[in-house]
Design a protein around this nucleic acid. Structure first.
Lengths: 350, 350
DNA sequence: CGCATAAATCTAATCGTTTATATTCCTGGG
DNA sequence: CCCAGGAATATAAACGATTAGATTTATGCG
């Protein structure tokens, strides 16, 4: 009912032209105070609500950006979206969210890019039709998605995944692994093992680089038997840890490349009769919520997800506004010290 | 560059009127095959992309609904959004997501409704301006939000929270608690304790109703010392459980009203030397992801979050289409049997 | 008081579609 | 071969705003 009030009705009732109404609405031009007040009153009376659709049509600006998430239910995505929203809120921007629902549609077979290229393509053309100003693509697992998406020249920024030709925001995996090995070294550890994720994944390799670099720099033993390859699952963490603890000379600390596997590590230690952190120190990765409920509470690396989202939006808006892309420093992980790390056998902190 | 092709350019190049182009695009009227083909070819050549903004302006339909989430980073929200998206995908609908970011803005003080009424109001008027067809409001904690939002007559459906005047989709808390007590009874348990959340929360009360009802129906002991009030936090679960286990006659099973507290229960049992499930059976609530990493893996109630989202959208679209609201059966939780429940002391399953 | 000039307001075109209505083009039967 | 009548297509008016440019109104100064 009150749906139908447009500036035309306002204009009629206030005895001015629609242009004048527009001027008072936007302050685009001077309007005599008397007139302005009159118009404002009518706007109030008629409970006028602006219509952004019409505005967008004329102005060719929608102040809307499209977010394509491969799967919003994956643990890191909501926090990234939160960061995107944070920026959007502060800049009068709106988000059209497209959820590809990859897990539900193609299971865990991310390698089969063709299978969901069409989902992405559909999402993109829908968003284009909606005249979004740009697109943010949120991958669920870090990997190279070059060529997955054609935006026909509209700005796009990727996050949590890699791409060759476009801007992509990803946290510094290598640095994080490096930092945590240094941290363990500082605590006095010398035999530091690592349990990786699947080695065909980019972050596994980057994190391993960080581990390797730190080991070399501190001239610590780099022994193949201290390197275990997991598959990101909790069972693999359990198995790998058991192998480590059965070594003649077991490590005193282990860097585990995600918290899920670290949960398995904890269990293995318990089963083998190793106390954590007294006999074995553990650093996890991801700061999953449950890592704080584990026993002991897990020391782990917090991912800068909010910052990634925020930063993606910021970069995207530069592109949207035609400014040149500027290099974005990689967001850093931060080590959360909780209870799963101690100095080994009464060794003193160096 | 190729941005600017509209049906006008198509019309010109194909030597037809814009109306004809529109007809072939929408199949609204018959078009001679020859003409149709010609138009289609030009569309292809010029790489025409439709403009939904213009379409919406004329047709007064945006096929867009607004989702207001109090906080997308809260564990249950993404799954609800996923359900919303699932419905949207199948019905050519789009989602404008507004994230109120309540945790970040007002901390955990949800009681201070006034503090975020303005956020909600802003979100609503933005969405109205964008001409969404309806709104879904996703609360973060189940509570009554009546009067929080004025949509000026546009359809709105609430989920995960309660409201007096509008439609609200919430799962069946009472039934879930009832079912799990019956399940424990079936397993042979007779002394069944409960650890509630804060008792000023609606789900705590509903779940307690379910517990009470089942206890009464099976004529089980209803003793005050078997009822512990927690605060949803893991520490409170730990404390409450210790008290239970220190009882002269401790319970053989306990229903814990969320998995976070249940993690504390597990820890308490371990500290007190009770084996789970041999000496103490535990049923949690929420099916948080980590409940599967606990030791033993936690038997818990899975929340029908996806269904709630899907169902909210379905109900909303009925309203949008002017159909009468129809009663929606409350989505049900489902008990996931894992490892934290067994029959007590060799008692046999009844 | 009259007029130049500045300030306020209005007119009308436009954005990219849809869709009544008008017009033109075919088709086939007499 | 003509014409009625239906099929195909074109014209033009919306939808609700913005914004040049035209027009009107107010202001100040000689």
């Amino acid at each position: 009912m009150s749906e139908k009030v447009s500036i035309k009705e306002i204009a009629a009732k206030a005895n001015v032209s629609i242009a004048t109404v527009s001027y008072v609405l936007n302050g685009t031009r001077n309007v005599r105070p008397k007139t302005k007040e009159r118009v404002l009153r009518v706007i109030e009376e008629l409970n006028y609500q602006p219509n952004d659709i019409a505005k967008s049509l004329k102005s060719k600006k929608t102040n809307t950006i499209g977010v394509i998430a491969e799967d919003v239910t994956v643990f890191n995505v909501p926090e990234i979206i939160d960061g995107i929203n944070d920026y959007a809120d502060g800049h009068d921007l709106h988000i059209v969210l497209t959820n590809l629902r990859l897990h539900k549609r193609v299971g865990h077979n991310y390698a089969d890019v063709e299978a969901y290229r069409k989902y992405a393509a559909n999402a993109v053309s829908d968003l284009m039709a909606k005249q979004v100003e740009g697109i943010i693509y949120v991958g669920i697992h870090p990997r190279d998605v070059t060529g997955l998406i054609d935006t026909r020249g509209k700005p796009i920024v990727y996050t949590y995944c890699y791409t060759q030709n476009d801007l992509s925001i990803q946290y510094n995996d290598e640095q994080a692994a490096y930092d945590s090995v240094c941290y363990l070294h500082d605590k006095g550890h010398r035999r530091i093992a690592v349990i990786t994720g699947l080695m065909d994944s980019i972050p596994s390799r980057l994190r391993f680089n960080g581990y390797y670099k730190a080991i070399m720099e501190h001239e610590l033993p780099f022994e193949p038997q201290l390197i275990k390859v997991g598959d990101w699952g909790t069972e693999s963490g359990l198995r790998a840890t058991k192998e480590l603890l059965e070594l003649e000379e077991p490590p005193t600390a282990v860097l585990v490349m995600n918290d899920v596997m670290a949960a398995g590590t904890l269990r293995a230690a318990w089963e083998k009769g190793f106390r954590v952190p007294e006999d074995l120190s553990i650093v996890g990765f991801d700061n999953r919520e449950f890592s704080d409920y584990l026993q002991p509470r897990l020391t782990t690396l917090d991912l800068p997800l909010h910052e990634m989202g925020y930063s993606s939006m910021k970069s995207l808006m530069r592109l949207v506004n035609g400014e040149p892309a500027e290099p974005v420093p990689m967001p850093l992980c931060v080590l959360l010290e909780r209870e799963s790390v101690a100095s080994p056998n009464g060794a003193e902190t160096s």
